[in-house]
Nucleic acid binder design. Sequence first.
DNA 1: CTACTTTCTAGACATTGACTATTTTATAGA
DNA 2: TCTATAAAATAGTCAATGTCTAGAAAGTAG
Lengths: 200, 200
Amino acid sequence: MRRPFHHGNLRAVLLDQAEVMLRAGGVDGLSLRELARQAGVSHGAPRSHFIDRQALLDALAVQGFERMAEKIGVALHVPAPVRERFRLVGRAYVDFAVDNAALMELMFAAKSNEVPGPVTDAAVRLFTLLDDGLVANSNAGAGGQHRERFKLLFAAAMQGTAALITSRRITREQGEVLVDDAMDALLASQLGTGILADER
Amino acid sequence: MRRPFHHGNLRAVLLDQAEVMLRAGGVDGLSLRELARQAGVSHGAPRSHFIDRQALLDALAVQGFERMAEKIGVALHVPAPVRERFRLVGRAYVDFAVDNAALMELMFAAKSNEVPGPVTDAAVRLFTLLDDGLVANSNAGAGGQHRERFKLLFAAAMQGTAALITSRRITREQGEVLVDDAMDALLASQLGTGILADER
DNA sequence: CTACTTTCTAGACATTGACTATTTTATAGA
DNA sequence: TCTATAAAATAGTCAATGTCTAGAAAGTAG
């Protein structure tokens, strides 16, 4: 079994510190050397755990997807009528995106997705969770297309709302209303008839 | 009157080259020194026109908003039924966003918007154009709220769709369908009744 | 022709990401 | 327990970059 030595668990420490730094100064403000300084190790130490700066960013992205999946998972299992549950999930999505704007940038950066890898896998896990939770996975066939399009509409609305807030075009409060409106429009659309996981 | 000397019009040349470089290597791949090299001037020359790297990025963002407004303006004035015109505008929006992904990143970066400035102004001009073109600006009052929420739904759907394509979660073709679906859902929603600029 | 301003050059500096050789620490095998 | 082996961390180096400064060159206006 492998165990850390000098520093307890440098990899975890670096990831934690990196997230703090990310929140403070954005992606550009995240410096490997500054990170090492704060962790009290030499400037070359991080290389033992992250071959690249990009490797660190990818690890952060994966962690981000996992934490987002947790939050969404909670909202997904709240016992409530469809409309209410959709709103809860939508808000969980948008809240996470807004509270972790810089992290979201990493998670959805085209860079990480150029070649399928751990980041892409983590993303797939999140959206599989979302899909399975929101939409009935029963009858395939003609309903399958409808389901697919419905899920994309949901994802686009959430991602778009988060983008509007993050870029300061609207306030967080306006975002709340927007999520609700989007959910209403979505549920009222023809695409959202007869394909929901729970019609209550 | 001010006229360029040595280099014709270095500022414009730099902006053009910067856009090429942006398209090739993303925001991170845009180096001031490399830019100067390609323009055949010394590494300090750009400083006469852009005090900062950020100043160059901001100038690019402003240019981006203006070009996007042009494209959208064209789609906005195509004589066609509402549904068709909405689709055209939506596609124009998404197409521009996808064809200029790195530029969009600059345009909507929170950095530029921390303090209102030229970038914010350019953004406001674009969205004013969009709003005035899509939604009737006649009756205020209770309809005003509806109009505002409708416009936000539109913006969120477009921005979200573009994000899905850019992050490679869906293909461009799926994006086309998604835009159409979003427009249908939008026009069918209660929010989109009686507030359109042209009910044809 | 002479100030004056703008544009550009050239040199310097600190910071950064990446690479390498080397030492230190831990783990496992005989 | 002693020892080979792998992992983790150090320290030094390098090229590249953004920013700043002083000064030269080019254009403009009085």
